[in-house]
Design a protein around this nucleic acid. Structure first.
Length: 886
RNA sequence: GGGCAAUUAGCUCAACGGCUAGAGCGCUUGAUUCACAUUCAAGAGGUUGCAGGUUCAAAUCCUACAUUGCCCACCA
């Protein structure tokens, strides 16, 4: 096959991917005798299209997966998609509105049916986009967060937690999104700072401040700090009459430490139904709670004539009324934190509702000989080092989150998701009871006339089971009809029969973004440790993963977040790929990545990395054209051969080590410099004097292997073009070839001579000067090489020194340049001399420092001594040269 | 309010106690059609945010400050 001049990625990538996929090498084999390595892919939303965040994690995980295969492991990289409950549900409801209908009109089943159709199409799109990234996942094992197997697991976990009293259904104050009409968890609430008017109102003898006058209708408690001297004449439980919004109310004094004395007047009224703090105060003192706002954000009859009005519309009118009543004392604009739903951006309205919660404080998990709460286990696994988080600083953040964690509200009022597996007798007010499925519910409740809780579960409840639920053999549950007998199997037996679970759990690595540490990583730890321990597995097996690597956000070149609301800020990977190639994109992403840190990516970075792919291509092209694809034992002959084999072995080891430590960026940098600087600019150029077919091919072959995890497409394309055996993707990590260290070092000396000759030539502006050398085996034997690479007119032995001495070389050599011209270089030389003197002094002072000699490691001292010797020698050379010129 | 991080060349970032602080992009000068102009060679450019301290040795550790970003939190 021929090599066109430039590597045009789009011409090869699709075919190359097909080749890999058809070869089956992405498939994991649980029966393999190789060591197993496993990693779950964070499932992208099935409705989304691939963005830079996906591109980053696919790149990093693909590097991990391909590298692990190279290390001779059986690799399972399990892909999936997420049903993205909230966004999809919102999208569907919006569609229905556009069609002039709504979910209640078409009914739950129809809603689910239409949603399934809708997402089914877009799922294929994102999967094909993942393939375009080169994703070497095992597609046969593709899972979905709303498939039957996961549903089976969700029901099982819910059922178990319910029976362990870890799940309860109670009235609690929750975050309610009136726009999407559902609750959201604490973690999904975002606080957005905005400036809003803060009203001061007269409430009986007190002045109170509020940002939300529309919630004040039912206020009948006035709260102050027990130690507040200003109000010591008022006693807890004192009552008094207040002229209020809708006439007279009887107010009661409450003393509570939650009040901040320094804020405003130190007095506040409370709205327990719509405020978390107020709710807690009310709970502490057994106060009444009145609902003011309904679940769609409208005022209730308690608001009198404002009843039925939207709070936004009613607020100014209410303020007006307060003013008329003479109750409004003042208004002041103040910064204020607005709680919004991070998903749909609806403004959160706290409400007291009957919801399902996961109790995080109840000791319920047997963990290392102790009964511990979910919180405690989450803490322990990281504290004990059973799970390692990279970078480590996120461990602190994780602990802090755990310490502040409250019970997790898991029920949602949307329809798209896993419906809560809890039933009761139809038409009753009985408490719902959890069962694994409806048949069990019918049997246990003793009637077929049952109803199921209409709510669905938080999408993270199912995602939390991702690492192990995806390893349960589908055959045991998919298509319930055919496998009816297994439906009633308990979790223990499902796990036991699933060979993947046996071989691949816990997963080796979890690679994901730090932004979902709490949402996902923490919840996987919570649910997995609980469930698997309760199924009788040991602690080790019950971990979801052993190492968590967290990457950062991909930002624009200007450091902005890429966001949908700002389309110009977005770099679409699916546009980059056809233009620059997948490898260019992957390399650009790797080049800027450090664990836990955001990175900026722009076109210029992608371009630079396309050039690297092209460099590899042209190295191969050159070798193919000059020596063909001669393979065979590499027998190094020239000094350059030894030198490159040495560097190849050093670089290969360094890349491997960096990857083992998740230092992707470092690994790539080592590779980059080896390929571009050492291989292309020195070895290949040197080899033009004395091409060594076997070594050239060996170095190319090895380089392709090392580069493959980073740039799979171009390396595999080259491999195929050169008709090397099999697939590059199936090759093992290379072993080092033999070479001679002394000869490798001699080439470094040649490099020194050549570099300096070039430098002087350019600096004094002569063309192709002659290099003179004192009797020297090294230069003499490599005359041609030195002449060509040094861009010299000739290289000849000289009886007497003449011209410009090469001061950096160990061998005596001079550039035969007119003394007049040489003088032009004098200044450079003087600078060099000064620098060298400074360096010598530095080393000398270091060595004459007693403390240094005593305390520094011997190795370092020895190294310093060597350096000093060399530095002195070079200083002499420079000085001598200067002397001869003056 | 609490916590975490960042601050290094014009820009984007590496070095995380020990070679004269490095790379990519950009810039300057030059080369060349012999693998690659998606090239090659050479060069300029840094008191590592500021002030102290610890150490034989500090960009790196400690303290304070400044600026920026992020996370968490019930200030009505």
């Amino acid at each position: 096959m021929t090599f066109p001049k430039a590597y045009i990625a789009s011409e090869y990538e699709k075919n190359i991917y097909k080749l890999w996929e058809e070869s089956g090498l992405f498939k994991a084999d649980p029966n393999s005798s190789k060591p197993h390595f496993s990693m779950s892919m964070p499932p992208p939303n099935e409705t989304g299209s691939l963005h830079m965040g996906h591109a980053l994690f696919l790149t990093l995980q693909d590097i991990i997966a391909r590298h692990q295969r190279q290390l001779g492991k059986d690799v399972l990289w399990l892909p999936g998609t997420d049903h993205a409950a909230l966004p999809v549900n919102a999208l569907m409801e919006q569609q229905l509105t556009e069609q002039g209908t709504n979910k209640h009109e078409i009914g739950r089943e129809e809603f689910k049916k239409r949603t399934k159709e809708f997402v089914g199409n877009s799922r294929n799109q994102i999967i094909s986009q993942m393939r375009a990234m080169g994703t070497s996942a095992d597609w046969d094992k593709l899972r979905y967060t709303l498939d039957n197997t996961l549903n089976r697991c969700v029901n099982e976990v819910f059922f178990r937690m319910f029976n362990d009293d870890l799940i309860y259904r109670k009235y609690r104050i929750v975050n309610w999104d009136p726009k999407l009409e559902t609750t959201v968890s604490d973690d999904e609430v975002e606080h957005k700072e905005e400036t809003a008017p803060l009203y001061t109102l007269q409430y009986g003898p007190f002045q109170i401040t509020t940002a939300r006058p529309e919630t004040k209708f039912g206020d009948k408690y006035v709260v102050m700090h027990p130690d507040d001297e200003r109000y010591k004449q008022y006693k807890h439980d004192d009552t008094f009459e207040v002229e209020w919004l809708n006439g007279k109310v009887t107010a009661k004094v409450i003393k509570d430490e939650a009040v901040d004395m320094s804020f405003g007047t130190g007095v506040m009224t409370i709205t327990p139904w719509h405020d978390k703090t107020d709710f807690e105060i009310a709970e502490r003192h057994g106060l009444e709670k009145d609902q003011i706002i309904d679940f769609t954000g409208k005022l209730l009859p308690i608001a009198g004539k404002f009843s039925g009005e939207n709070i936004e519309d009613a607020r100014p009118k209410i303020v007006e009324k307060l003013d008329k009543l003479g109750l409004l004392i003042g208004v002041e604009d103040k910064p204020h934190n607005l709680a919004v739903n991070s998903r749909g951006k609806g403004v959160i309205e706290p409400q007291i509702m009957l919801q399902w919660f996961v109790d995080v404080n109840r000791p319920a998990v047997e963990w290392k000989g102790q009964k511990r709460s979910l919180k405690e286990v989450m803490r322990a696994v990281v504290e004990d080092g059973d799970i390692k988080i990279i970078p480590k600083r996120f461990e602190k953040i994780y602990f802090h989150w755990i310490d502040n964690l409250r019970d997790w509200c898991v029920s949602r009022q949307i329809w798209w998701g896993h419906q809560i597996p809890a039933w009761r007798k139809k038409g009753t007010d009985d408490d719902y009871v959890a069962f694994r499925n409806s048949t069990e519910a019918e049997n246990k409740l003793g009637t077929k006339n049952i109803e199921r809780d209409p709510d669905t579960l938080d999408t993270w409840f199912s995602s939390a089971l991702w690492t192990w639920s995806t390893l349960i053999d589908k055959v045991y549950y998919e298509g319930d009809k055919d496998h009816e007998p297994h439906r009633r199997d308990n979790l223990e037996s499902l796990l036991e029969r699933s060979i993947d679970f046996d071989k691949y759990h816990p997963t080796t690595v979890m690679e994901t973004g730090y932004d979902i540490l709490f949402f996902w990583v923490a919840r996987m730890i919570l649910a997995t440790t609980y469930t698997l321990r309760s199924a009788g597995l040991d602690e080790e097996k019950s971990l979801p993963f052993k190492t968590v690597y967290l990457h950062g956000l991909v930002r624009t070149e200007e450091g902005r977040k890429m966001s949908k609301s700002d389309p110009d800020s977005i770099i679409d990977p699916m546009e980059v790929i056809p233009e620059f190639g997948t490898d260019a994109l992957r390399l650009a992403l790797v080049a800027g990545t450090t664990a836990g840190t955001d990175q900026r990516v722009g076109k210029s970075k992608i371009l630079a990395n396309r050039n690297f792919a092209n460099k590899l291509w042209n190295i191969a092209r050159y070798i193919q054209e000059t020596v063909g694809n001669n393979r065979g034992e590499p027998a190094p002959k020239s000094l350059a051969d030894h030198w490159i084999l040495n560097l190849l072995s050093i670089s290969s080891e360094a890349v491997k080590k960096a990857l083992a430590n998740f230092k992707f960026h470092e690994a790539y940098e080592i590779l980059y410099h080896f390929v571009w600087d050492d291989l292309a600019d020195w070895y290949i150029e040197a080899s033009k004097t004395e091409p060594n077919r076997e070594v050239l091919n060996h170095v190319l072959e090895t380089t392709l292997k090392i580069a493959h995890p980073f740039a799979p497409f171009v390396t595999e394309t080259i491999w195929q073009n050169l008709e090397f055996e099999g697939l590059l993707a199936a090759q093992l990590w290379p072993e080092a070839a033999d070479f001679d260290h002394t000869k490798a070092k001699q080439f470094d000396e040649l490099k020194n001579i050549i570099s300096e000759a070039r430098r002087i030539t350019v600096a004094v502006g002569v063309n192709k000067p002659t290099l003179l050398y004192a009797k020297s085996g090294l230069i003499e034997q490599n005359k041609e090489l030195v002449k060509r690479l040094g861009r010299l007119g000739d290289v000849v032995e000289a009886a007497k020194p003449r011209g410009m001495r090469l001061v950096g070389a160990k061998n005596d050599a001079w550039l035969d340049i007119d003394p007049q011209i040489v003088k032009a270089y004098l200044a450079n030389l003087k600078v060099a001399q000064k620098e060298q003197e400074r360096f010598v002094k530095l080393l000398e002072s270091r060595l004459s420092n007693k403390a240094y000699m005593q305390k520094a490691p011997d190795e370092l001292v020895e190294q310093t001594e060597n350096e000093l010797r060399q530095a002195k020698k070079q200083l002499d050379t420079i000085s001598n040269q200067l002397k001869s010129m003056s």
